[in-house]
Nucleic acid binder design. Structure first.
Length: 280
DNA sequence: CTGTTAGTCCGGCGGC
DNA sequence: TGCCGCCGGACTAACA
């Protein structure tokens, strides 16, 4: 499941590998991934023909490619999406959804088994509504010591106080980029149970949580992200953070700190993992 | 209007 | 071996 560190890893690698090559042609093989109303594979091909990617950025869990004339491609990897850099002679991979051929023989394959991802194409200057709905990026300066207490404890946060902290961390309109893996890992590091009501968490704990979120995300970016099953870097290699997970997907295993058995609870329909002794 | 919840998409996988 | 239910980001619809 690509979250912020996985998307950041992919974006950095794409930046190093696919910018400034002329796109000879692009193909949309799974039209249902393109969410622009009324756009089909023909429109998609025409959008890219002769263009060049001049930048790739991450916003939350979204990838944003800008073309030389200012138009943009938005991509979300969903659960099983990946971008793999290949050569023109490499065979087409299974579950190919879109593909970009560059002058010189470089190829970018976009693969998504379950097709929970999305693609959008936007002309120069157009608003991208899904990006406008994103909250604070946890690696940005705006995510300072005050940010989390403000989100939860301020007047505006009134209605959010009854939610479980784990559920709140997953809300992309509040904090953009944190998913199930890093919500669990950050809560573990901050010593806070995922089931705690957000409004009952102290200011000091929230500040500690914000720090934990940043620390775990930065460490995961350094390791190239976490591979549970599908996520891959653009060279098709897995991320290196999985062995460093302390609670996520470790139900029934022993806490690396205290030795207690790691528990799993379902919150808002999502699995949340925690250590019953280390987290209060 | 605001905020929350349920349904939807999809296919690999585990269990029987 | 085959079928069935489970899982999950984020959108949309439906609801309080």
């Amino acid at each position: 499941m690509p979250e912020l560190p996985e998307v950041e890893t992919v974006v950095r690698e794409l930046r190093a590998q696919v910018l400034n090559y002329r796109i000879t042609h692009a193909e949309l093989l799974r039209a249902d991934l393109l969410k622009n109303l009324g756009c089909d594979a023909t429109d998609f091909a025409a959008f890219f023909a002769g263009g060049t990617f001049i930048s790739v950025e991450r916003q939350g869990k979204y990838l944003l490619f800008t073309l030389d004339h200012g138009s943009r491609l938005l991509a979300h990897l969903g659960m099983t999406g990946k971008f793999i850099v290949a050569g023109e002679k490499d065979p087409p991979p299974k579950w190919l959804c879109s593909q970009y051929h560059f002058k010189g023989g470089l190829r970018l394959d976009h693969v998504d088994v379950r097709r929970f991802g999305r693609l959008e194409i936007h002309p120069k200057g157009a608003d991208i509504p899904v990006l406008k709905r994103l909250g604070i990026d946890p690696l940005s300066k705006a995510f300072n010591a005050k940010a989390l207490p403000t989100l939860v404890l301020s007047r505006a946060g009134n209605k959010r106080r009854t939610r479980a902290i784990h559920t709140l961390l997953l809300d992309q309109s509040l904090i953009a980029g944190v998913g199930n893996i890093y919500a669990a890992e950050a809560l573990f590091r901050a010593g806070i149970r995922p089931t705690r009501q957000a409004g009952k968490i102290t200011k000091a704990e929230l500040e500690r949580l914000a720090k934990s979120i940043q620390t775990v995300l930065k460490e995961a970016v350094k390791a190239g992200g976490t591979t549970i099953s599908d996520y891959r870097r653009v060279d098709d290699k897995p991320g290196g953070f999985r062995i460093r997970l302390r609670v996520y997907s470790r139900e029934g295993e022993l806490c690396r700190i205290c030795g207690k058995t790691v528990k799993r609870v379902v919150l808002g329909g999502r699995s949340a993992y925690y250590c019953p002794l280390c987290q209060k």
